[in-house]
Simulated assay, not measured.
Amino acid sequence: MSTSMTLPICSCCHRHIMPNDKCVKFNCPECGSVLIWRCESCREAARPFTCRSCSFSGP
């Protein structure tokens, strides 16, 4: 039996986030309908993200 896992992707740099990475996830502060993932590197560098639903942009 084979199982596959879909890894989340950072909303800033678009790299896969591994299970033990220090990352954060939260709903878009504007619309609340999109889950935003940010890797540790993008979070520390305050790289901007953009919501794919409402186009809200934030650090």
Rank of each mutant, 00 (worst) to 15 (best):
P29E: 05
S41V: 04
L35P: 05
S55K: 03
C39P: 07
C12S: 14
P48G: 06
I9L: 12
S33T: 15
C51Y: 04
C51R: 04
E40K: 07
F56S: 13
S33M: 12
H16A: 13
H14N: 11
C54S: 00
S57W: 03
R38Q: 15
W37F: 15
E30N: 15
C39Y: 00
I9F: 10
V34D: 04
P48C: 09
M5C: 15
C23S: 09
C12L: 08
A45P: 03
H14T: 14
G58W: 01
F56W: 14
C13Q: 07
R52G: 09
R47V: 03
C28V: 03
C42R: 03
M18A: 13
N27D: 13
I9V: 15
A45H: 10
S2E: 11
S2V: 09
D21C: 01
C13I: 12
E30Y: 05
R15W: 07
C23H: 09
I36R: 00
K25M: 04
L7M: 09
N20F: 00
D21P: 01
N20Q: 03
C28N: 00
S53N: 09
K22S: 07
A46N: 15
S2C: 10
S4K: 05
E30V: 07
C28Y: 01
C10P: 01
V24S: 11
S11D: 06
C12Q: 14
T3I: 13
C28G: 05
W37R: 03
C31P: 04
S11P: 02
W37T: 11
M5G: 05
S53H: 07
C54A: 08
C10M: 05
N27Y: 12
N20K: 03
A46H: 14
A46D: 14
G32P: 11
I36F: 01
P29C: 02
E40F: 04
P19T: 02
V34N: 10
E30H: 10
S4Q: 14
F26P: 06
S11V: 07
K22C: 09
N20T: 03
C51H: 00
G58M: 00
S41C: 10
E30L: 12
P8R: 06
W37P: 01
C51L: 00
C42H: 10
K25Y: 04
R15Y: 07
K22P: 04
M1P: 13
C10I: 09
C13W: 05
S55R: 07
C31R: 02
S11I: 05
T3D: 14
S41G: 09
H14F: 15
